[in-house]
């Protein structure tokens, strides 16, 4: 009994951690640019596939390349970190193609929504073309050295979930420390607060914007790799669902709020884990039902700042 309770809570916290990563990915870009990067879900998928390939995973690309794989087999940790970096670079490319042309023109925010969704569509369909629509499972040896289950307080729990939670926590702590303590992190916060003033203070706001995209993509890539190894890669569309959940978490916590994204993620993960198994089909609607309620009761999110409309 205690096993089941502990495992349920841990499952919730682990998936909540991944939701928080995605929500933080949105938050970074939103705080600097004031728009939502809808390509983030596709970047999440990319992170999963790149981790899989870097670890020597085989693909068949709809039968076009049966048994093809990269001639390397990195262990999980370097593969995950490298995949996060590569996904971050892909995110920079998204910025260049979907955001930069509109920014130079001073276009209305609505257009960013379309172009970033277009970028996501291109990415997901490229993955589908190159990797195939079929799902892939990471090799059983992917987490060699990690025991299947851990004994905690007399209860046996799955260690993959512990790993997930640990990596997410580490990433969130690193990000928070960087934002609060480092020079570049503070510069990013300054740009988020007021881009014009930041520019007058000599902060290169363009560089900060690119940094925000890089980190945002890396967080999504990290999430994709973690979900891939703990569950599987069900297909190139895997990231879309996580992208949408991240959006729900983002609003739940309040747009642009870092602690809000973390708290919202954990809350959402735990709420989902508590859905009984025989109603699991409805689990995917829970996040959005919660989101709906929060929007109606507190339109600025749980930890969001209130804005006053001026004439």
């Amino acid at each position: 009994m205690i096993d089941a309770v502990l495992q349920t809570l841990l499952n919730g916290a682990a998936s909540g951690g991944v939701y928080a990563l995605v929500a933080l990915g949105y938050t970074l870009v939103f705080s600097v640019l004031g728009v939502i990067n809808f390509a983030l879900g596709a970047l999440f998928s990319l992170g999963g596939y790149v981790t899989y390939l870097l670890m020597g995973g085989r693909i068949s690309a709809n039968g076009a390349l049966p048994g093809w794989g990269l001639p390397l087999g990195l262990p999980f940790t370097p593969a995950l970190l490298l995949a996060a970096l590569l996904t971050g670079l892909a995110s920079l490319l998204v910025e260049r193609l979907a955001f930069a042309p509109l920014r130079r023109r001073g276009a209305e925010p609505l257009l960013y929504l379309i172009t970033s969704l277009g970028a996501g569509l291109v990415l997901v369909n490229l993955l589908q073309m190159l990797m195939g629509a079929e799902g892939y499972a990471f090799p059983a040896t992917a987490l060699a050295g990690l025991p299947d289950a851990l004994q905690v307080a007399g209860a046996r729990i799955r260690s993959v979930q512990v790993l997930l939670l640990a990596v997410c926590t580490a990433a969130v702590i690193a990000l928070t420390l960087w934002l609060e303590r480092s020079r570049s992190g503070r510069a990013l916060k300054a740009v988020a607060e007021d881009a014009t003033t930041a520019r007058l203070l000599g902060i290169d706001s363009e560089a900060m914007l690119r940094l925000a995209f890089l980190l945002s993509g890396a967080l999504a890539g990290l999430g994709g790799g973690l979900i891939g190894v703990s569950i599987s890669l069900p297909g190139p569309y895997m990231g879309i669902g996580y992208g949408l959940k991240g959006l729900a978490v983002l609003v739940l916590g309040g747009l642009g709020s870092v602690p809000g994204a973390i708290a919202g993620g954990l809350l959402m993960g735990l709420a989902e884990a508590l859905v009984p198994a025989d109603a699991s089909g409805w689990r995917d609607a829970l996040a959005f039902a919660i989101l709906f309620l929060v929007l109606l009761l507190r339109p600025r999110g749980l930890l969001g700042r209130r804005q006053v409309e001026k004439v």
Binding site: P101, A107, I114, G118, A119, N125
Partner: peptide, 14 residues
């Protein structure tokens, strides 16, 4: 084709 369709949506607004 779906990649091209995505490209139209990506580049169209600009």
């Amino acid at each position: 084709r779906l990649v091209l369709f995505g490209l139209v949506i990506l580049l169209g607004p600009a």
